[in-house]
Simulated assay, not measured.
Amino acid sequence: MKIIIIEDEKISANYLAALIKESEPNAEIVSTISSVKTGIEYFQDNPAPDLIFSDIQLGDGLSFEIFREVNVLTPIIFCTAYDDYAINAFETNSIAYIVKPFTLGSIKDAFKKYKDLQKMLLPNDAQYRAIMGILQKNENQVSSSILVYIKDKIKPVKLDDIAMFYIENGITYLTTFDNQNYTTNKTLEVLEQTIGTNFFRVNRQFIINRKSIIEAAQYFGRRISLHLKVPYKEKIIVSKGNVAKFLNWLEYSE
């Protein structure tokens, strides 16, 4: 059984590898991947393994980005310190979700799920791959609303009512067209996957609704500043690396 580990913390990767070998002595760990960029490059150039153990939060983004860029049918066991991404995980090929710290028991349970899935579907390999394909995230599936938190209350806000999302002091906020601000527990990386093409991430801090843009203007350093229908205390700037893609989106989005 060939296995790939996706984990950016070396100590955690080594400990996970040890638990995998203890659980499955015949397992071969063919590679340990530590970033989204490296993961995309690896899966583009190498055959898929039998099983993937993957952390979610990596240094350069979320591991979901790897599987969004590269079509990988391999079952994935997500291993993370957070339980916030469970729903997103099961929109990929996930067959198990382990919350850190790892234990030998949790790794063995994950292997059991993998083997049970194989027994249920084999020897019909075509059926197995078809079902794993269905488990893959549907790129066209878009959320219709976002859950926000107001003290002890939770309520949905329709995407059509949201002008922008932004990060401030590590917290994700959204601003509605009627200038209401709310917090959400989703990161910008997770939001990018689910809010559709009417929104664009202009830089590391902001995701903007196309309908919120009044005009764009040239700015220093070949960047672009935005004038929106909702106020913000600072200029919102399209980062230099995103300018060409942003202009194309602005011209051709609905």
Rank of each mutant, 00 (worst) to 15 (best):
201 R>Q: 12
164 M>S: 11
199 F>K: 09
136 Q>H: 12
148 V>T: 14
140 N>F: 13
243 V>K: 09
204 R>A: 06
254 E>R: 10
102 F>Q: 04
250 L>T: 14
223 R>P: 04
147 L>V: 13
108 K>L: 11
14 N>C: 09
167 I>W: 01
188 L>G: 01
139 E>W: 00
167 I>F: 05
174 L>C: 12
214 I>H: 08
102 F>V: 13
213 I>F: 01
89 A>W: 01
209 N>H: 12
219 Y>R: 01
169 N>K: 09
103 T>K: 05
140 N>H: 14
105 G>W: 02
176 T>A: 03
121 L>M: 15
27 A>F: 05
251 E>L: 07
202 V>I: 15
146 I>E: 05
75 P>N: 04
179 N>M: 08
215 E>D: 14
79 C>R: 02
195 I>K: 00
36 V>I: 07
160 D>P: 00
89 A>L: 06
199 F>E: 15
180 Q>E: 08
46 N>W: 03
20 I>S: 06
234 E>F: 00
156 P>S: 13
239 S>E: 09
171 I>K: 07
74 T>H: 04
82 Y>Q: 07
176 T>F: 04
115 K>E: 14
131 I>M: 15
227 H>C: 13
121 L>H: 13
34 S>F: 04
121 L>S: 14
8 D>W: 02
151 K>Y: 10
57 Q>A: 01
188 L>D: 05
121 L>K: 14
166 Y>N: 12
219 Y>Q: 06
192 E>W: 02
67 F>L: 10
152 D>S: 13
151 K>E: 15
239 S>H: 06
223 R>I: 05
